[in-house]
Amino acid sequence: MKRDQILTRQLNIIMRREQKFLNQKENTFVKSKVTPIINKIQNKIPEKLVSTLDKTFYMGFNFVFEKGNAYVEKTYNKDRIYSKYDLNNYAIDKYMSKKHLKNIDKQSKQSSSINASLSAVEGGVLGLLGIGIPDIPLFISVIIKTINEIALSYGYQYATDEEKTYILYLICGAMTKGETQKVYAEKTDLLGEDIDSNTYISICLEEIMEETSSILSATLLTAKFIQGLPVVGVIGVAVNPYIINKIGKYTRIKYKKRYLLGKVSDCQ
């Protein structure tokens, strides 16, 4: 099979996987039984708490992006991950084998599973402290750690404001539903294209951090609220790894799609 045929086939596979992710149907039991209960809880959550969580998530993103990335990078071997990508990418360019494409995937999957385990421990311990505010910066660090490692696995750096915005769009896309999710999916693709083609991009990172903070806060608010109740104080054990896994899965899809689009473009 020719190089461009293999790439096109792999691209079609990942695009189908993306559509499946974007068109997931809500479980019938959850929709009929759980969602109404969640809505009742949400209506009882004080506005002050909503505002506090939004600000805390924003401060968490701001800290990690402005000062904390150096500390996050101490939790994994950046050079080793990128070196593995470099070797696999060289092999793909030379031999165009599905085996080496799978090797890149394998590296990115390991990051998500390990970080989901870390977030389970973090959620179980810090969830007992109350509403969960103390663990939000740490939770955001685990999210960014997961995305950073996946990005490196596919050969992408993350230091620029453009790449940080791409990361924030990934989080928004993973944590929203329906048409809103599809809008973020398109925004992510368009931004990736602009970055990779060196197109000028006007970005206000602060606004996008606020936007992402509001979405992530709203998604986790009910779980964090329940987390503060003594009877179910360890809900973070279940919630946090679920979120990490979901973001990790979506991130792998998007970075692999971006990687393959670049390879297809090089063939043309």
Rank of each mutant, 00 (worst) to 15 (best):
M175I: 05
S83T: 14
G155W: 09
Y76G: 10
L216H: 02
G60P: 09
I144M: 12
M15V: 03
S111K: 11
L261E: 14
P230V: 06
C267H: 11
L152R: 08
G130I: 04
Y166N: 12
G262D: 06
F61V: 08
D79K: 12
Y154G: 07
I140P: 05
R3H: 10
I81D: 09
A185R: 06
G155E: 05
T146E: 06
N148L: 09
I6D: 02
N43E: 15
I13D: 06
Y82R: 11
Q107M: 11
R80M: 14
K109L: 11
G233S: 12
G262L: 06
E122M: 15
S83F: 12
A223R: 00
I144H: 02
T165C: 13
A223N: 13
E210I: 01
P36H: 07
K109H: 08
K94D: 11
I226M: 06
T219D: 04
V72T: 09
N77C: 03
N245M: 01
D4F: 07
M59N: 15
E193I: 11
N88E: 10
K84T: 12
I247P: 00
T212Q: 05
V239N: 01
K44F: 13
I253C: 01
I131T: 13
N198H: 13
M96K: 04
F57A: 07
Y200L: 12
K109T: 08
Y90H: 10
Q5F: 10
S108E: 02
N39W: 04
L53C: 06
I114Q: 12
L260E: 05
I114G: 00
Q107E: 15
K257D: 10
F65R: 08
A116F: 08
L216A: 13
N23K: 11
Q42I: 08
L191N: 05
L87G: 05
N89W: 09
I81K: 07
A174E: 02
D194G: 00
E18T: 03
R16L: 14
L128A: 12
S214T: 14
N69M: 15
G132H: 05
A174F: 06
S108D: 07
L49G: 01
N77S: 13
N198L: 09
S108Y: 01
T160R: 07
L126C: 05
L220I: 04
I244S: 03
S213C: 02
D93F: 08
S112R: 09
K182R: 09
F63V: 13
T56P: 04
I253R: 01
S141L: 02
S202H: 08
K177E: 14
I201R: 11
A159F: 10
Y90A: 10
T165W: 05
